Computed example of a mutant assay.
Amino acid sequence: MPKPNYAFEKRQRELAKKKKQDEKDARKREAREAAAAQEAIPASTPQEPRTPIEPPVPGPRVHRRQPS
């Protein structure tokens, strides 16, 4: 009976893992590129002019009593 070649089996498992990870990375990359393309389209359309933001009006000052 032939001796099992564990090194070959391990290498095949490693190659399968690497292929699966590469496919996952490619899907993520495509999703990021699609999202970036979706964000770029509205940015090129004319937008309404923004009104200037007014600074907040300061409220009343509150003073705390000093302990005597």
Score class of each variant (00 low, 15 high):
residue 2 P to M: 04
residue 62 V to A: 09
residue 11 R to V: 04
residue 48 E to C: 06
residue 40 A to P: 07
residue 50 R to I: 09
residue 55 P to Y: 02
residue 8 F to M: 12
residue 16 A to S: 07
residue 12 Q to F: 04
residue 47 Q to A: 08
residue 26 A to E: 12
residue 38 Q to I: 00
residue 1 M to C: 10
residue 63 H to Q: 13
residue 54 E to V: 14
residue 2 P to T: 00
residue 9 E to D: 14
residue 37 A to L: 01
residue 17 K to T: 00
residue 36 A to M: 03
residue 44 S to L: 11
residue 60 P to I: 04
residue 62 V to E: 11
residue 53 I to G: 14
residue 37 A to D: 01
residue 1 M to T: 07
residue 53 I to Q: 15
residue 65 R to Q: 15
residue 23 E to Y: 04
residue 64 R to E: 15
residue 30 E to S: 02
residue 63 H to C: 12
residue 44 S to C: 02
residue 16 A to K: 03
residue 30 E to M: 00
residue 68 S to P: 15
residue 13 R to W: 08
residue 46 P to D: 03
residue 6 Y to A: 13
residue 49 P to Y: 05
residue 24 K to S: 10
residue 26 A to L: 04
residue 35 A to W: 03
residue 38 Q to W: 02
residue 40 A to H: 00
residue 57 V to A: 10
residue 45 T to V: 12
residue 13 R to M: 10
residue 4 P to C: 04
residue 37 A to E: 05
residue 12 Q to L: 10
residue 4 P to Q: 06
residue 24 K to V: 07
residue 11 R to D: 13
residue 68 S to D: 12
residue 34 A to C: 01
residue 29 R to G: 04
residue 28 K to V: 04
residue 25 D to P: 01
residue 25 D to K: 04
residue 25 D to C: 02
residue 52 P to G: 10
residue 16 A to Q: 02
residue 64 R to G: 11
residue 4 P to H: 06
residue 8 F to H: 12
residue 68 S to W: 09
residue 64 R to L: 15
residue 35 A to H: 02
residue 61 R to K: 13
residue 54 E to Q: 15
residue 47 Q to S: 09
residue 1 M to E: 13
residue 29 R to Q: 08
residue 22 D to K: 05
residue 47 Q to E: 08
residue 36 A to H: 03
residue 5 N to F: 10
residue 14 E to S: 09
residue 41 I to S: 00
residue 57 V to N: 10
residue 61 R to S: 14
residue 24 K to G: 08
residue 66 Q to R: 15
residue 28 K to F: 00
residue 52 P to F: 09
residue 59 G to N: 11
residue 29 R to D: 09
residue 59 G to C: 14
residue 15 L to N: 10
residue 53 I to A: 15
residue 51 T to V: 14
residue 61 R to W: 12
residue 37 A to Y: 00
residue 20 K to M: 02
residue 32 R to V: 07
residue 11 R to W: 07
residue 4 P to N: 02
residue 33 E to L: 01
residue 4 P to F: 05
residue 6 Y to T: 12
residue 37 A to G: 03
residue 18 K to W: 06
residue 67 P to R: 02
residue 65 R to H: 09
residue 36 A to L: 01
residue 13 R to A: 11
residue 16 A to N: 03
residue 14 E to R: 08
residue 23 E to F: 00
residue 52 P to N: 05
residue 22 D to G: 04
residue 43 A to N: 05
residue 54 E to C: 08
residue 18 K to I: 07
residue 41 I to D: 09
